[in-house]
């Protein structure tokens, strides 16, 4: 009988190869479909199979590099990546992420960081998920949207604020003209939230691009994947260098699955309507929220958990 279990040298854990490939394939499919990295799903799943939290998070960031690179490649070939917008948001995201790390330190010193972070996470997921779900359902019932998913121009308070900002710039691929400061500020805000919540931020960034920047859904997916490549490269290197928690073997099997899944997801994404995509993503976001609430209310089994593994 062929032994298909593999020993992960950094995680110090053995696991069946098919489990890793299956996890990678499923999460990669979601990455390609919605343009999210999938870290908010993969890390808890890895912890569930017994991998320590820090190794799970660090190796997950490593495999997301492959999934997002693969997804970006696929979306670039389909003409769905706004590189200009992506690079500007990366700049904002790095600034926001750095500020967010400091904010976490302040909250930890105040002693109530855990409560603040968990409640923020749940509220954010609830607001984003519910809004996306309702909006997409309304659109699906009313009339089919144009293929690009662009909404009819409608001036909102946010639009008025954006118009008041200097340096208006044309983003051809997204078909919008806005101040260069808008994506920088939004990228920074998402960066703060990402650092606060410890997630890649794709599930926040995608609704921000759809609802606030009013970019077409398919361009949002490709552009978000592009900016996540940079975020995850940074996290992978930092975790490998400072914490020695990246398990390359674990990441390798996950990414073989996720890179394949991302390609399949990108193809399915291009065949679905914008509102259909959004309603599925909204459902996943709401399910994750329910899972987090369940975890917060039910006794954890053992009152101890390893602080960063052993």
């Amino acid at each position: 009988m062929l032994n298909l279990c593999i020993h992960l040298p950094i995680a110090n854990f053995s696991v069946h190869i098919l489990v890793l490939l299956g996890l990678g394939l499923s999460v990669g499919f979601l990455a390609g479909l919605f343009g999210v990295g999938g870290g908010f799903l993969m890390t808890p799943l890895l912890m569930m199979i017994g991998i320590s939290p820090t190794v799970a998070a660090a190796s997950d960031a490593n495999q997301i590099v492959a999934a997002t690179a693969s997804g970006t490649f696929a979306h670039w070939r389909l003409g769905n990546v706004d590189f200009k917008m992506g690079l500007i948001m990366v700049a904002g995201g790095i600034t926001g992420g750095t500020l967010g790390v400091q904010l976490v330190k302040v909250l930890r010193a105040a002693g109530e960081a855990g409560l603040v972070i968990k409640v923020t996470y749940v509220v954010l997921l609830a607001v984003i998920g519910t809004y996306m779900f309702q909006d997409s359902l309304k659109n699906l019932r009313r009339r089919p949207l144009p293929e690009t998913g662009v909404r009819p121009a409608k001036k909102s308070w946010f639009g008025a604020c954006c118009d008041a900002l200097p340096l208006p710039t044309r983003f051809e691929k997204s078909g919008i003209t806005i101040s260069v400061f808008v994506p920088i500020i939004l990228g920074a805000m998402v960066g703060v939230l990402s650092a606060l919540l410890g997630v890649g931020g794709g599930f926040i960034m995608v609704p921000v691009m759809v609802y606030l920047l009013r970019m077409p859904m398919h361009v949002v997916v490709g552009t978000n994947l592009f900016q996540e490549v940079f975020t995850c490269i940074n996290v992978t290197f930092m975790q490998a260098y400072y914490n020695h928690t990246v398990d390359l073997l674990l990441a390798l099997f996950l990414l073989l699955g996720s890179a394949t899944g991302a390609q399949l997801g990108a193809r399915v994404s291009n065949r679905l309507k914008a509102d259909q995509l959004k309603i599925v993503l909204a459902t996943i976001v709401l399910l994750v929220m329910v899972r987090i609430i369940f975890g917060l209310l039910v006794h954890p089994g053992t009152e101890f958990s390893l602080l960063g593994g052993e």
């Binding site: 492959a66 390359l248 390609q263």
Partner: peptide, 17 residues
């Protein structure tokens, strides 16, 4: 090791693409 992990991930991602 960190650079190797990134290079492998990028390479696999693009090759799959």
């Amino acid at each position: 090791y960190g650079l190797l992990a990134i290079a492998v991930a990028m390479m696999v991602g693009i090759v799959m693409g």
